[in-house]
Write a protein that binds this DNA or RNA. Structure first.
Lengths: 238, 238
DNA sequence: ACCTGAACACCGTTCAAGT
DNA sequence: ACCTGAACACCGTTCAAGT
């Protein structure tokens, strides 16, 4: 009768036993397509035609599963191997990271926020440390790493954070509120509204899929790399 | 018998009716003290001695409530009014923002990730736009705003994201895994482990309360402001 | 080894009904 | 206007019991 309930006998194995990889793959697709609200251990189990407890046997609890999903996602990002200049190398890597996040915004959103720590996804960090190490930053190396990593990853998290709640035909409540902002209270935002309206973090009503902040991201990476060059120049003086 | 259940008659008002402000205040304290796992609409209602539905009458649903909690939290951050130099002004504001987040890490974590959009907390954005507007960045103004905002806020989100799972007496699983990293697979991380171990994003096992990334944050803001100065110099040339 | 079936202890949200 | 009490439709997780 109910198609969701597996038609197997009590305790019986499936003919082809399910694998951890298949579960991770299905979780990835479920999150990708239906987002945070569509994903749960129970909905995933139903999707796979098994009982929830089966998932726990193969991949552990929810946060461990999300850790595996993150691994699968981050594996789409590879460090460039053809660029000698560190400036261009960093720029290209940052772009690839962001591009991967934009390809799977629902996954990026979810795993950036609730996942188990896993040491497998340190391939990119290792490559970055290697590049920074060559620069001769000395004791500042770790801070350069944190600054670049935090800024780039953090920007993308915030860029993707907004979820526009309604169809495009009706003017959303957020848009109305932002357009109706009081010039007394917010003189600078209202005066520059043509320039920043729907284009600035927390002053927009369209999500990143429909209105990506490409130029702002380029500008950010430019600031970071210019700033890093300035630090290197300062160190070279002494 | 059960102290959690209010001893009021069916449908009866409390002598002193509860207010939206009191609910927000209680939610703030509950999140602050017990974190994500300790906070729910139901636990908050129990804390206040009312039924869950009462909260919905006063503050709407969970995400709206978290929007109000965010407002209350962000109101602790004020823009400096005594600094004329934009460089120092931005630096001081970034420090104040991060300090507020570190004062209430549980609140910062939760509201940065699931809250309703609210237009009241645009006081700081408005001040930033005002300052950037004076700089004469032209069409790049919005990108400078997004870059600074995204990098600073994003860094703090990631810095606070880690929650160390156990008491300090036992060596955590994360620490063991990171110390046991394969030098073949992660040559750069293992070679520089003395410098970056427990001090770099995703390569640490102690949370930000016990091991804040102060110097890295300072380094980041330095990069951003140096980079911005470089952009201004470039614009002045033409 | 792998999976079922059921149970436990929760959630957020809605709503008729009370005062 | 404000709140109760109950219900609805879910969760994540555990575990004895099956094959």
């Amino acid at each position: 009768m109910s198609a969701a309930q597996p038609a197997r006998k009590r305790g019986a194995r499936a003919e082809i036993p399910i694998t951890a990889e298949a579960i991770v793959e299905a979780a990835f697709r479920l999150i990708d397509e239906r987002g945070h609200d569509g994903f749960s251990m129970r909905s995933l189990a139903t999707e796979l035609g098994v009982f929830p407890a089966t998932l726990y046997w193969h991949v552990g609890d929810r946060s461990q599963l999300l850790g595996l999903v993150e691994q699968r996602w981050i594996s789409e990002v590879t460090a460039p191997d053809h660029l000698d200049d560190w400036h261009e190398w960093m720029l290209e890597l940052a772009r690839r990271y962001r591009a991967a996040a934009h390809r799977h915004p629902n996954v990026a959103r979810l795993v950036s926020v609730e996942r188990a720590r896993n040491t497998e996804s340190l391939v990119i960090p290792d490559a970055i440390v290697g590049r920074l190490d060559e620069l001769g930053l000395g004791a500042d190396m770790v801070h350069a790493y944190n600054a670049l990593m935090g800024a780039v990853q953090g920007f993308v998290v915030l860029e993707l954070a907004l979820i526009a709640d309604s169809g495009p035909e009706i003017v959303s409540e957020v848009e109305r509120d932002l357009r109706a902002l009081d010039p007394q209270q917010f003189p600078n935002i209202t005066r520059n509204f043509d320039q920043i309206g729907n284009r600035a973090l927390s002053i927009r009503w369209t999500d990143a899929q429909h209105q990506p902040l490409d130029q702002s991201f380029e500008f950010l990476v430019q600031l970071l790399l210019d700033g890093l060059a300035a630090q290197l120049a300062k160190l070279a003086e002494t």
